[in-house]
Write a protein that binds this DNA or RNA. Structure first.
Lengths: 245, 245
DNA sequence: TGCCCAGGCTTGTCTAGGCAAGTACAGTGT
DNA sequence: ACACTGTACTTGCCTAGACAAGCCTGGGCA
């Protein structure tokens, strides 16, 4: 069979068959045909219905599975997914980019940048021995002169030996570390808490003002890279995200 | 060319060629070959290197792109992605499942479940007119008798007419709504804030205790379904997530 | 009755080739 | 100096067919 092209027509563009199949199944799913767990048409049926080769159907279905909308079981069939499992994926943007995207100016003030001996907690989370050398920075980030984040970070010297040589008023530690050691795994936790006395002072808020605290630990190539405690004044900061299949 | 099978060998299983190509490129990327934005091998080069057909290479590369690790531009080439953009995905699990996963018991107390006239704010976020009927529930969720979440929810009657007929001590509103109206888009915001007087009383905490507040708005089939304000005591709740390419 | 096994279904993966469409660049003509 | 054109290279998408491997069921046998 040969490719069916739309000859002289000036239509925007015929959607690719695999995309049409995908969209069709998405529409039917959103209309509630095939409730979660129910069997959907097999590859062979879709091949017959859309008059395409099986590779094309396979591509559409594999992408839907990657998006979490369907499940496929070899030897059994294709099923509508239980959406609850996939219902929430939140994207956290880099603070620097976020400020720039709002059209504002980003400024950083470095309060601390030195090598220290690792305390027990730091040593454990970075996979070092207690007392080993570790880099420690404390930086406050401003959006148009409003303090937005207090970044308390420890870095494994083995992963970024030149970390302290950086000018953190020009590049954020996150950006630098991404260049030096490509990020390969990260764990987050987000909680609401009160700031420490020092954090309250650096951020210019009261000790009773609630803060959003993000703790992040990244590991690359099996070696811990950095841990960070990011404290944001609750009144000035909002994490936003969206989920769209 | 025919398929190369591993005949009688009892090895676990030979990895599929597309998976091997994917893994190889991931490894090289994590080692810092091809810094962000740099050109990577073309399809043709990978075909020659791995002795596979182009479809196989295409599949590997398309999946890497779907994961955000590479970028491809028609007519130009394949490039290592700027990882900062993808650096943070957070998954939020359903509270009920989360509690069960910890091996604890989930209990809900319904403080309010009735139809009301929509206030201005509620009407706007649900796409209704002011004064139109809207369902309102206020439920506190407990993990082994410890209050973990105060859920203040408004529901569009057009999306879930039988919402109030539900027994929310047996099924969470989220689960019910997912059954009735397949979730199709959601927006979140997360912030730290102080609880209202009523929320503090219901959760059994002080008015000065910081809380993690999640606001969620879901839309299905172009029609708003529900908005929810989820208040968690900061001392008892932690959002966790991880990112792994 | 209970067990085993052979079909017949499903999805998983691959091949070898093809045309379409976007880009970059060198060469040509004005 | 500038605009155009052809060519080579890239990714995007597709086909027709094949074999592999997992699952289920019904028929035959002990």
């Amino acid at each position: 069979m040969t490719r069916r092209t739309t000859p002289g027509s000036r239509l925007p563009r015929a959607a690719a068959p695999y995309a049409r199949i995908k969209q069709h199944l998405k529409n039917e799913l959103s209309r509630g045909r095939w409730p979660p767990g129910e069997a959907m048409p097999s590859d062979a049926e879709l091949v017959a219905q859309f008059r395409v080769s099986r590779m094309t159907v396979t591509r559409a279905l594999n992408e839907l599975r990657a998006e979490g909308l369907i499940e496929r079981v070899q030897g059994v069939g294709t099923f509508a997914a239980h959406l609850a499992r996939v219902a929430s994926q939140l994207r956290i943007r880099d603070l620097h980019e976020e400020i720039l995207a709002r059209g504002h100016r980003h400024r950083a003030r470095v309060h601390l940048a030195r090598a220290e001996a690792a305390s027990e907690g730091v040593a454990r989370s970075l996979g070092l021995t207690v007392g080993a050398q570790v880099f420690h920075t404390l930086i406050v980030h401003f959006e148009d002169d409003v303090a937005l984040q207090c970044e308390d970070r420890h870095v494994n010297p083995a992963s970024a030996p030149d970390y302290l040589g950086c000018d953190f008023t020009r590049i954020t530690p996150t950006q630098y570390l991404l260049q030096v050691a490509p990020l390969w795994e990260a764990r987050y936790s987000i909680e609401a808490a009160l700031p420490s006395a020092r954090e309250a002072r650096l951020l210019g808020i009261g000790r009773g003002d609630p803060c959003l605290v993000v703790q992040r630990r990244t590991v690359g190539n099996g070696r811990p890279i950095t841990t960070a405690r990011l404290v944001h004044p609750g009144a000035r900061y909002l994490l936003q995200g969206e989920f769209k299949p």
